[in-house]
């Protein structure tokens, strides 16, 4: 039966359902569309409460998209829909469509675990696994997904830590507990852990809100460096951060998408009155 639903629901691409390797035949289609996600009429409910109201938005590939808005406006809920993490909350209901490179994320045959391998996530509070060393933390995603080859693991360890700008600081302490390093380093360790499974997209849910200004600056620099290889969606309620790091910015307010556009344009010449009020600090 599973085979049946998969073959019938596979849309235009011939690559089948969620393929974990980024170099799949879908690459050609990606270049044409240039959108990682196409969100159409998305609404989300937690029980009776509607958190997201009829949002349509296209998230560009290989660019940084920032989502800003006051607390409780649905920013986190929205990006959690992009890798189906919101499903962990009981009694959630989704309406509308999210296409990821043309494939329906919520199609009957699609497996949340496969979605999340391609769409990784970094959280607000750094959360290295407390029972694991720095090395084990980086490699856990690969190991638990069945990678055993020591050479592959070693290569991926160094590559991920280098990309997360952490290698030089921890290369001699790889066996130390992941919790033994500073808060900013822990957050970069979490980024390395997410990168190790080689996702195409990195979702970041207020990744700097628990960090001091110096650690924040390091992470922002890192985000800009990752831009060339990953599609990044970052939620922040720090507007300066959004204007510093992102290419495009979306402004959310009480579950609705008020404005979405080029970051410089949105901050300098907002089209909507509500956006202007928010970015000039009149509310929120």
């Amino acid at each position: 039966m599973a085979v049946n639903t998969m073959s019938s629901s596979t849309p235009t691409s011939q690559s089948g359902a969620m393929n974990p390797t980024p170099t799949s035949p879908a690459t050609a289609a990606e270049l044409v569309t240039a959108n990682a996600f196409a969100v159409k009429d998305l609404s989300i409910w937690y029980g009776e409460k509607q958190a997201i109201k009829n949002i349509s938005i296209d998230i560009p590939v290989m660019a940084i998209t920032a989502i800003i808005g006051p607390s409780g406006c649905g920013k986190s809920t929205f990006i959690r829909c992009l890798n189906r993490m919101h499903e962990l909350v009981p009694r959630t209901r989704v309406e509308g469509k999210i296409l990821f490179h043309g494939e329906d994320l919520y199609a009957a045959g699609s497996d949340p675990a496969m979605v999340r391998r391609r769409v990784g996530m970094v959280f607000q509070k750094s959360n290295p696994f407390p029972t694991m060393s720095i090395e084990e933390n980086v490699l856990v995603g690969l190991r638990l997904n069945g990678v055993r080859n020591r050479q592959v693991l070693n290569e991926r360890l160094e590559k991920s830590l280098r990309r997360a700008a952490l290698w030089d600081e921890v290369k001699n302490d790889l066996k130390k507990p992941g919790m033994s390093i500073s808060g900013g380093q822990q957050q970069r360790l979490c980024i390395a852990r997410a990168l190790a499974v080689e996702p195409e997209v990195l979702l970041m849910d207020e990744p700097c809100s628990a960090l001091d200004p110096i650690a924040t600056a390091k992470i922002e620099e890192l985000i800009r460096e990752l831009r060339d290889q990953y599609t990044i969606v970052i939620v922040t309620h720090n507007m300066q951060q959004a204007s510093r790091v992102s290419d495009r910015t979306a402004f959310f307010y009480v579950g609705e998408l008020i404005e979405f556009g080029d970051t410089a344009q949105l901050f300098n010449r907002p089209r909507e009155r509500q956006t202007e009020d928010y970015i000039t600090g009149r509310f929120g």
């Binding site: 974990p20 675990a113 696994f129 995603g141």
Partner: peptide, 28 residues
């Protein structure tokens, strides 16, 4: 803490492996 479950699931690790290798290991 739920953050560990989320971190593991966000890596594409299955629910059962998350429970055994992350949650139960943390609480062992």
């Amino acid at each position: 803490p739920n953050g560990y479950r989320e971190a593991s699931l966000a890596l594409g690790i299955s629910r059962w492996k998350t429970i055994v290798h992350i949650v139960m290991k943390t609480a062992s």
